[in-house]
């Protein structure tokens, strides 16, 4: 396991080839859960767990999996891990399980997981696949936290539920509602597009998929 390779996986997953603003994956949940920072954080952690272990499992059995049924196998593996997250939250963190409600189950529909399983884990050894899952999940979590930071701050005047802007702040209800998410995500993609030079695309082709 070489350091350069794992470093590259992380640069790609978190920054250069970030699943949300580069590959435009996982947008639905990035729009849905980002009105509170705590929700975004737990959602992100859940996604890191599911992506990492799904990629690990897919990679472990990749040599035995018949090519034409691999999607079925991947879906099964992903949903199994999502159910594990759901059960663990219900048993050991019931208050968060309630706060996230249906979103935990919706991790299954997150295209990042399937995208990475298909693009990376199918062709790479287990350890790197596991790291790639963590990297992509982290990239997703960071984006969610950035978006939710602005949405929660402007929409509620709070950060992680702690009041920052004081009582005189007039909440922008728009930021908590769906349009606020669209505006923030668009601004973020715009900002990263102008910050990241396009020529980097050569190196970031590694695992990009369009889904």
């Amino acid at each position: 396991m070489s350091n350069t390779k794992s470093k590259e996986i992380f640069t790609l997953g978190v920054w250069k080839d970030n699943p949300v603003y580069r590959q435009i994956l996982g947008i639905c949940s990035a729009l849905a859960v980002t009105n509170l920072m705590l929700n975004s954080l737990v959602m992100g952690l859940g996604l890191i767990f599911v992506t990492a272990f799904s990629e690990l499992t897919v990679s472990l059995i990749r040599r035995f999996t018949p090519k034409h049924i691999r999607m079925m196998v991947q879906t099964l593996i992903i949903s199994a891990y999502v159910i594990i997250v759901d059960i663990l939250l219900k048993a050991y963190y019931p208050s968060m399980s309630e706060a996230l409600g249906p979103y935990v189950g919706l991790i299954i529909t997150n295209c990042i997981i399937m995208g990475r399983c298909e693009a990376f884990a199918q062709n790479n050894p287990p350890i790197y696949s596991f790291l790639d899952g963590i990297a992509s999940g982290t990239g997703y979590t960071i984006v969610l936290l950035i978006i939710s930071f602005f949405r929660e701050l402007l929409g509620f005047g709070t950060v992680f539920g702690i009041n920052i802007l004081g009582d005189s702040w007039v909440n922008w209800s728009l930021m908590i509602m769906p349009p606020g998410a669209f505006f923030m995500l668009a601004l973020l993609i715009w900002a990263t597009k102008s910050l990241l030079p396009e020529k980097d695309d050569e190196t970031s082709k590694g695992g990009a998929v369009n889904a």
Partner: peptide
């Protein structure tokens, strides 16, 4: 035969571990 057996085994393994956790 191979894909069917493979899918069966994978399904059984995951269903079993989920029901154990449950």
């Amino acid at each position: 035969v191979y894909p069917v057996t493979f899918m069966l085994i994978v399904t059984v393994v995951f269903t079993l571990s989920l029901s154990l956790l449950n």
